[in-house]
Design a protein around this nucleic acid. Structure first.
Lengths: 189, 189, 189, 189
DNA sequence: AATGAATGAGTGTTCATTCAT
DNA sequence: AATGAATGAACACTCATTCAT
């Protein structure tokens, strides 16, 4: 009995994680306001109303999506941060990782950088997650020595901005750009 | 007759510029979608419908606001760019100016960085204005020598991101931060 | 003094008749609701607000336009009706005249047939004018003998409907069709 | 499962047909522009927004209503047209039927004769339906021999105009008038 | 006489949300 | 669990109308 309940619960959790991933995509593509629950649901072969069986409101779904994405990215970054090698190398690889998140995996992560949320409380939560994310960079930058809080934020700004001007059809691949950018950002710190 | 017509037209133009400045504020604060014409009008002691005497649609008002703000900032930057002195100094002062635009005059300029516009055409126009703005930096950076296109965009990203984390109630004034940031960004190029 | 006042008044009256003619066109083209005062004014090289110097409301302008058009058409028809010749011939020529009004001069006259007016009182007035117009046909039809009230309305219905299906680019000219229709309608009575 | 789905779908279809009938009434009474979705909804004990669960726009609801009404009337007429008896008799009964549609069932059918639609495409669709309707008359008129295309349109014009002047409180019942009119229209052809 | 400015009322449309099934 | 149905709130937009100039 307990086992089957556990299986059901696990299945539900899996389903929710998928929902959050899809939701993150739509939020990232359209912005919070223009992302409609009906569209998110459609990409999941559901109807908008059904989402309310999993999340009490659009804000909650959004928050779950952001938390999900942040946790995933932060985990990936922490792995890099705690790997072997000199701090400078690890910082460089953090930049590369983050750049690739922006350039390739952007849809599931961008909500972190969404602005103009309707609710200040929601905004505060997102900023908190944003700080968790930035902390990884700050820690490794601190090890390097020259790394200041300001420097870290400057680098993160550069990285967040990548998708505004990067042209995937250009001569540079996402990977090449990521490497190049990482090198340059090291000069910042 | 002609003179009085000119005066009326000038008054109208002035009023429009005020409208655009206020509109830019609201767009920057709320984002395109959540910025309601009624709110923009309220800050001008008008009603939403009255705005239609000046702009045929919300999109047009938005675009006018962005063009207005961009023109103003670009003019300010061009003045700096074409002043006397070594290119490095001028580039540094460009960074300071842009940082102050972000940190102090942000409300009237931020729409340039707005994403998630409802219409691709609108988006394209904004990107075009964005390029005009970036061009100033690129030109002076080119004079410096080390300045690449990518480096310029990285710097602009850092600057655009300032307002996400700068705390005006902290120990650094906007001016101090601007100077500090400008110094650091020079290392990027 | 009186003379100059009279001249001014006459000029004003002329201007109003032009306004009414243009208004009738727009009302006929767009229907009462979709005909905007601004469009009517634009065709007169004026602004919408200026119309209020001549008519206290849209309804009044509409009514004046319809009265104008009706008076003109009725006058034209009365001339035909009171001309020499056998009643049948005159009735036939009445049909031709009315058909041509519909097919050629339609824009200035059609408001008579406009339905869906916003106000019952307005509608009643239009119907009254409509009856004045029908009376001409009825009187001559009565002379013919076989002409009943119903027959007259059937004929007027046929004529009013012409513009729904007549194709000016077809093989029949408006004049030819008018003649043909007049012949056929005589069989009705 | 399939059966219950079918039942749900059928119920929805029924509801839609009711909506279209009511919509046709309001459109006929008020004209396209003045017919507000809120009023149509009110007559169905709904709110305007709810209509959007069934039709994507006012135009679509209008078109569905017209198609619905036309199909119904054309079906009724086709039955008459394909019944036994000499063509003249059948044509006469077509006139009677159409007259009764105009005089009694008018609200659900009149949209066919609505003019001044806001969209040319919409207008074209309505005209197409109008032709389908006229075709029935033209076919039977052709069998009679004297029946021309023009004659048919003249008759239809007479019939469409009936409701402009018929007074239900007068001495003639709708049925009596229909019979009388049918007789007279035969003389047209 | 003409109009620029402003507005209130009305309307189509979207969408998050609720609820009965 | 899923959804069809319904809705209230919000919003862009239109337009007849008023009024000061």
């Amino acid at each position: 009995m307990t086992a089957s309940v556990g299986r059901v619960a696990r299945k539900r959790a899996e389903r929710q994680r998928l929902m959050e991933r899809v939701a993150a995509e739509v939020f990232a593509e359209r912005g919070y306001e223009r992302a409609s629950l009906e569209e998110i649901a459609a990409r999941l072969d559901m109807r908008g109303a059904s989402l309310y069986h999993y999340y009490p409101s659009k804000e909650d779904l959004f928050l779950a999506a952001v938390q999900n994405a942040t946790a995933e990215v932060v985990a990936r970054l922490r792995e890099v941060a705690s790997s072997d090698g000199p701090a400078v190398d690890r910082l460089r690889r953090l930049f590369v990782s983050q750049a690739l998140v922006e350039l390739r995996d952007y849809p599931s992560f961008a909500p972190l950088f969404l602005m103009h949320l309707p609710d200040p409380v929601l905004d505060a939560r997102v900023r908190e997650l944003s700080r968790e994310h930035a902390a990884v960079f700050r820690e490794v930058a601190a090890e390097v020595g020259g790394g200041s809080r300001i420097g870290t934020y400057l680098a993160l700004g550069s990285l967040a901005y990548l998708r505004r001007w990067y042209d995937p059809s250009g001569s540079l691949s996402a990977e090449e750009l990521a490497e190049h950018v990482a090198d340059q950002l090291l000069h910042l710190l």
